[in-house]
Amino acid sequence: MNQILRLKLGAATLLALVANPTWAADRLVTVAAQPELKPCLAAMPQIAAPADDAERRINAALKRLDGNVRKAARSCQADGGANSSWTRTIRTPMRGPRFLSVEISDDMFCGGAHPSTGLMAIMYDLTTGVPVDWTKLLPPALTGKVALVEGMDGTKMVTLASKRLHALYLERYRPKTGAAKRDGDDDACRTVVQDTSMGDPPAMMAWPDAKAGGLAVQYDLPHYAQACADTVVIPNAVLRREGAQPVLTDAIEAAHAAP
């Protein structure tokens, strides 16, 4: 009898997910790692047991990103020969409700004097299965100029060039610790990121980080200063004060509180 009841409840839950995709997106999703494309080159993860078309659309989009890095890695090997390399690590710092964020870190050497590192971040709306429209989540002061840029493998990402967002980043970048040696070592990096604010604001990537409880922000720096390209998290409380939409801040709060 109990087994029959469980089957009925399971069927009812599945029917509700299909009939109401918004309700489906209000849950945390399970993200499954996939076999590496090659040693040290991580494949994009997949939403396990996708509940609706939106989640299946995200899985298909993530699969396409694997094609981008395969092609880029082959080109890199053609240029750099036997000494070339491309490594990739992937994190999913938010897995619902409502949003899935994917953080992709690449390290590649295709010949030349030095390797290159890069970070890409994509945030999907679990109700639609497509990347989010930041202008519907953040106020104009934080979105600034919205643009598409290409990552190291040709993947297109949304960036926000906003003086206010950059100011919030700078306020939290490598704060002084009181330890003379550490603060001295960080001074050069502080100078680099400060200099980027002298003219137009940089094109910044943004994505929610559930564990950190806020919006992660990072942007590219000149090759010589790539080691200074830190990710800074703007707390959820600050986002609320700045006018971020509740659909974003409530989702981050719920994800942060989840076990």
Results as ranks from 00 to 15, higher is better:
196 T>F: 11
145 K>P: 03
148 L>Y: 09
181 K>L: 15
196 T>D: 10
160 L>N: 10
166 H>W: 04
189 C>Q: 09
148 L>V: 07
189 C>W: 11
203 A>L: 06
154 G>T: 09
145 K>T: 15
164 R>I: 02
185 D>Q: 13
171 E>Q: 13
194 Q>C: 01
162 S>K: 10
143 T>P: 08
196 T>A: 14
187 D>L: 15
146 V>P: 04
150 E>F: 06
196 T>E: 15
144 G>A: 08
150 E>Y: 02
199 G>K: 13
187 D>P: 00
197 S>G: 14
169 Y>G: 01
142 L>E: 05
151 G>P: 06
167 A>E: 08
191 T>P: 03
187 D>Y: 00
151 G>H: 10
192 V>R: 12
176 K>H: 11
201 P>F: 13
198 M>R: 15
185 D>N: 13
182 R>H: 06
158 V>K: 04
194 Q>S: 13
159 T>L: 02
203 A>E: 09
158 V>Y: 04
164 R>L: 05
193 V>M: 08
201 P>N: 11
200 D>I: 03
161 A>W: 03
167 A>C: 02
193 V>H: 07
142 L>N: 05
156 K>Y: 05
173 Y>R: 04
175 P>E: 07
179 A>I: 13
150 E>K: 14
183 D>L: 05
145 K>Y: 07
203 A>C: 04
201 P>Q: 12
197 S>Y: 00
160 L>H: 09
161 A>T: 07
187 D>F: 00
163 K>F: 02
143 T>I: 06
146 V>A: 08
147 A>W: 03
189 C>S: 06
170 L>N: 11
166 H>T: 13
200 D>Y: 00
146 V>W: 08
183 D>W: 00
177 T>Y: 04
183 D>E: 07
142 L>F: 03
146 V>D: 01
193 V>W: 06
152 M>A: 15
186 D>S: 11
154 G>P: 07
178 G>I: 02
170 L>T: 10
150 E>I: 04
171 E>A: 13
179 A>H: 11
199 G>E: 12
204 M>P: 01
175 P>Q: 04
151 G>Q: 10
175 P>S: 05
173 Y>P: 05
164 R>T: 14
175 P>M: 06
144 G>P: 01
198 M>S: 14
189 C>P: 03
163 K>Y: 01
189 C>L: 06
178 G>C: 03
192 V>L: 03
195 D>G: 11
179 A>P: 00
182 R>T: 14
178 G>F: 03
192 V>I: 12
158 V>A: 01
166 H>A: 12
168 L>M: 13
191 T>S: 13
145 K>L: 10
173 Y>G: 06
197 S>E: 04
185 D>H: 06
147 A>R: 15
201 P>H: 13
157 M>K: 08
150 E>T: 11
185 D>Y: 11
181 K>F: 12
169 Y>I: 04
158 V>R: 09
166 H>Q: 15
197 S>N: 09
157 M>Q: 14
141 A>E: 15
180 A>K: 03
175 P>C: 01
172 R>W: 00
160 L>W: 08
149 V>E: 10
184 G>L: 08
202 P>H: 00
186 D>A: 14
146 V>G: 07
193 V>A: 05
195 D>W: 02
165 L>K: 11
144 G>I: 08
173 Y>N: 03
147 A>I: 10
154 G>S: 10
